[in-house]
């Protein structure tokens, strides 16, 4: 016999689980049904291959490519910034820093992740862009470069923190084996410890990418809101997320085709982040098996 208190707790827990699942299913349902309306009017081939995205203009085009390229470009810049920085910080904290330093700095880094993203957006627009313009005169006041760089700084903690956990979990015996053969600390860190933690590091990078793809405020504020099929970081670009905000905040009529474009863009975004999450989950599982 279970006590009635326990039964209630169990029910409440089950209920909250069910609510979460239902909400997720609901979101997916809305995404699919609304974008089904979009694809009833616009052929999938236009969506995938047209090189312009101008649903809000008089001459309408519905090609997702400019939004994808904007998302890809800012994400690429962000990851190129965050990956080396994140790994260097992680290696420093795990292999070089003394315990006290590690204990103080790690939470401080995690605060970086807690700064509201709108603050990062204005930092990119009002500090980073003017600063970079001194060296790159052709840099627009809205550009992919500043947005990507600042987004990179923003996801450093995602990468450094998870990578550091992975590095720290590498058994001490591997480091000793390396030192025992006459390796330096640097060699041991980068040739033994980092490779041994590579699956954990990979997971952190994928989560960082997912975070960058889904990030909205920084790109909406600092990269501009002009769909632009380009890989030139000096130019204005619009990402999928920035487009969604733009429409959601505008006065587009509910139920119109313009309105439905949001869902078509949204489902594209969803597919990417969903895939990335699954890949990271799969890597994590494989990695756990290896050490068990």
């Amino acid at each position: 016999m279970k006590r009635s208190g326990e039964v209630i707790i169990e029910k409440v827990l089950a209920l909250s689980g069910i609510i979460t699942i239902l909400t997720t299913l609901g979101i997916i349902w809305v995404l699919i049904s609304e974008s089904a309306g979009f694809f009833a009017d616009i052929p999938l081939t236009d969506f995938l291959f047209d090189t312009e995205w101008t649903p809000l203009f008089a001459e309408k085009h519905y090609g997702i490519l400019p939004l994808l390229s904007g998302t890809f470009l800012t994400t690429l810049i962000a990851i190129s910034t965050a990956l080396p920085m994140g790994i260097i910080i992680a290696v420093y904290l795990s292999e070089y820093a003394d315990k006290r330093f590690r204990r103080t700095v790690k939470p401080m880094l995690e605060i970086l992740a807690a700064v509201p993203t709108v603050v990062y957006g204005f930092f990119a627009l009002t500090v980073v862009t003017p600063f970079l313009q001194q060296f790159i005169p052709s840099l627009g006041s809205f550009n992919a470069l500043s947005a990507g760089l600042v987004m990179g700084i923003m996801i450093i903690p995602v990468i450094s923190s998870l990578s550091e956990d992975a590095l720290y979990a590498v058994p001490k015996s591997l480091r000793e084996a390396s030192y025992g053969m006459g390796a330096t600390k640097f060699q041991t860190s980068f040739k033994v410890v980092v490779p041994a933690a590579s699956s954990g590091i990979l997971v952190s990078v994928i989560l960082g990418i997912a975070r960058a793809i889904g990030e909205t405020m920084v790109v909406a504020i600092a990269a501009g809101q002009q769909p632009n099929l380009t890989l030139d970081p000096r130019q204005t670009v619009e990402t999928i997320t920035a487009y969604i905000v733009q429409v959601s905040l505008g006065d587009v009529q509910h139920g119109s085709l313009e309105y439905k474009t949001v869902f078509a863009a949204g489902i594209t975004l969803f597919v990417f982040t969903f895939l990335l999450n699954n890949v990271s989950f799969w890597i994590k599982k494989k990695y756990q098996e290896k050490y068990e």
Partner: peptide
Amino acid sequence: FQKPNPFPK
């Protein structure tokens, strides 16, 4: 060492 500790290579 006491416990075999080959690198994961």
